[in-house]
């Protein structure tokens, strides 16, 4: 009798890799145990293919189902899931598709993949109560630069050298990808989702870097600095007013007034 750990190592390898002669001796079935093993092998691949295709609909529309299926298999082999919740699996595809094995694909596929993944992720969030800009009034002006602002959980910021948002629109309207007329154009996208819905809009570079920096937990001064790098005319007061008016801020944290942290 093999130790259970050894049996499971052999079985797992036979499911996720290739069946070895060792596994045949472990298994019993009325007819051919290896044919029965192929059911587990098939389920393993098919369940992940189905899942990844569901998470990357625009990418599949763009590269076609056969290539998407092969990509899903490659992701599964290179980066098998490390947690039992299938819904959380698949972000790894965005890294793998940016690698040399996919250099023949259009240059924007990695951004499309990131967009697909993030739209799916933000759509399952729920919005937190927004706070008003008057909440900043309690902070002395010379301390404002140190303040951090929490943003709605269903927000994501994506910059691309290609107008990838147009591709999602085309997919939704069922346009054939062959009809694409696609020219490079840098876009700064704010993706917003909650309770099963999602949308996006284009921001100016300054606004994009400001909000993206805040989301990355940088203080206001550092976020404004990022924005100014892209847009020397960036107006932080106006940008802050818009951020709060759009209901995107959910909490403020000042290192000097810990009571604000709640």
């Amino acid at each position: 009798m093999l130790a259970l750990a050894e049996t499971q190592a052999t079985f797992r390898h036979a499911v996720a890799g290739e069946p070895s002669s060792a596994v045949a001796g472990l298994l019993v079935a009325p007819r051919d145990p290896i044919e029965r093993l192929s059911i587990y092998r098939r389920h393993y691949r098919e369940s992940f293919r189905r899942h990844l295709r569901g998470r990357y609909p625009t990418l599949e529309w763009l590269i076609g189902t056969p290539r998407m299926t092969a990509l899903a298999d490659a992701v599964l082999e290179a980066r098998p899931p490390r947690a039992p919740s299938l819904a959380e699996y698949g972000a790894e595809l965005t890294e793998i598709i940016a690698g040399p094995d996919y250099a023949d694909l259009p240059p924007y596929v990695a951004d499309i993949a990131r967009l697909d993944w993030r739209l799916g992720s933000i759509a399952v969030e729920i919005e937190a109560p927004a706070i008003a800009i008057t909440d900043l009034a309690a902070i002395p002006p010379h301390r404002l630069g140190d303040v951090r602002v929490d943003l709605q959980p269903g927000l994501s910021y994506l910059r691309s050298a290609w107008p990838v948002d147009e591709l999602v629109k085309l997919r939704v309207t069922e346009t054939a990808p062959e009809q694409l007329a696609f020219a490079a154009e840098t876009v700064h996208l704010e993706l917003r989702g909650a309770r099963g819905k999602f949308g996006w809009r284009r921001l100016s570079g300054g606004e994009f870097f400001f909000r993206q920096s805040l989301q990355a937990d940088r203080p206001l001064a550092a976020a404004a600095e990022q924005a100014l790098c892209d847009d020397p005319g960036f107006d932080i007061s106006a940008a802050l007013a818009r951020l709060f008016a759009e209901g995107l801020a959910t909490a403020i944290h000042s290192p000097h007034r810990e009571t604000q942290d709640d």
């Binding site: 259970l4 996720a16 587990y40 098998p80």
Partner: peptide, 16 residues
């Protein structure tokens, strides 16, 4: 069982 050495196979696999 469905996991081995931290990898998840997304299936309910049989046991001896």
């Amino acid at each position: 069982w469905s996991t081995h050495e931290g990898d998840y196979l997304n299936d309910l696999l049989p046991l001896p």
